[in-house]
Design a protein around this nucleic acid. Structure first.
Lengths: 147, 147
DNA sequence: TCGAATTGGTTGCAATTGTAACCGTTGATT
DNA sequence: AATCAACGGTTACAATTGCAACCAATTCGA
């Protein structure tokens, strides 16, 4: 029999558990107040934080399936929080951008996010989050290199 | 305007992205070979690694919704990888346990998992995974304390 | 320059998931 | 004991999701 295996120290498992926990925890902050789903918030955040982008870029950036992005974009557009403009060079591409209303919503929720993270950092101690994120970046790099 | 917000350093976002990435990456190792879904693997792993448990305990342990657990258990049972035995004191409770076949499957997949993590550690350097997991443990503690 | 392959994006459909309501059992309150 | 809340677990139903097939536009290659 091979050396023992402890699920508790298996990284995919641990990452998933932590991610689901924190995701739910933060979702409670905006789901009710802004009637927004997670893909929508992610899209809003991507656009609000990095500016004008295409749907494909949003997906690549936040690792969301393109149909998820497509639907989130449709939702946000209907809410008039986002507008599309077609690229004049390549007519397949559409550039996405937040409207004034979208930007306003983004700022409010970003504010929640900042507060949320600050309170977490309060508990964890200074630098703790940065250290975790540096570790995550390494993991992502390793995985993406893995083909 | 409040101080800037960068999605890229927002922990829920970063955790989710990394978790989805690694989860997919490892799922490729067993989905095909063992025709198993993620909840099934999680349940199998929980039982294989911690032994006899109830469904509620599996859920609490791996942070899965109880309907997810219920369905995974049904699947595993049909495959004869798991058996239920009722508690004689409390007839609501059922204890879950892997069969010999289930244990065998568990060991094989655990082997994949060990190899997977070893190759990751190879890239990341010694101790890197432990450090990340320690950080995650802190985060989970903080979140669970948060009511 | 024509056809095949690729790309950005959407959609139909089937599978996965969460919510809420439920069943039978147990524990607490009276 | 009788009632009622709580609990372990399942299930019906609705919402969310992913896969695959698709459309239109573009690029590649012979």
């Amino acid at each position: 029999m091979p050396p023992s295996f402890d699920l508790e120290s298996f990284l995919p498992y641990r990452l998933n558990r932590a991610a689901e926990l924190i995701s739910l925890s933060f979702a409670r902050e905006y789901k009710q107040r802004y009637q927004m789903t997670r893909p929508e918030w992610r899209t809003l955040a991507a656009l609000g934080s990095a500016g004008r982008m295409t749907a494909t870029e949003v997906g690549a950036h936040s690792n969301m399936h393109k149909t998820k992005v497509s639907r989130a974009v449709r939702e946000l557009e209907q809410r008039r929080w986002l507008k599309r403009t077609e690229d004049d060079a390549d007519r397949r591409v559409e550039h996405l951008e937040l409207t004034a209303a979208g930007l306003k919503a983004y700022r409010e929720i970003a504010d929640l996010a900042r507060t949320y993270q600050a309170s977490l950092e309060q508990v964890l101690g200074a630098g703790a989050i940065e250290r975790i994120e540096a570790g995550l970046a390494d993991v992502e790099r390793a995985l993406l290199a893995k083909t």
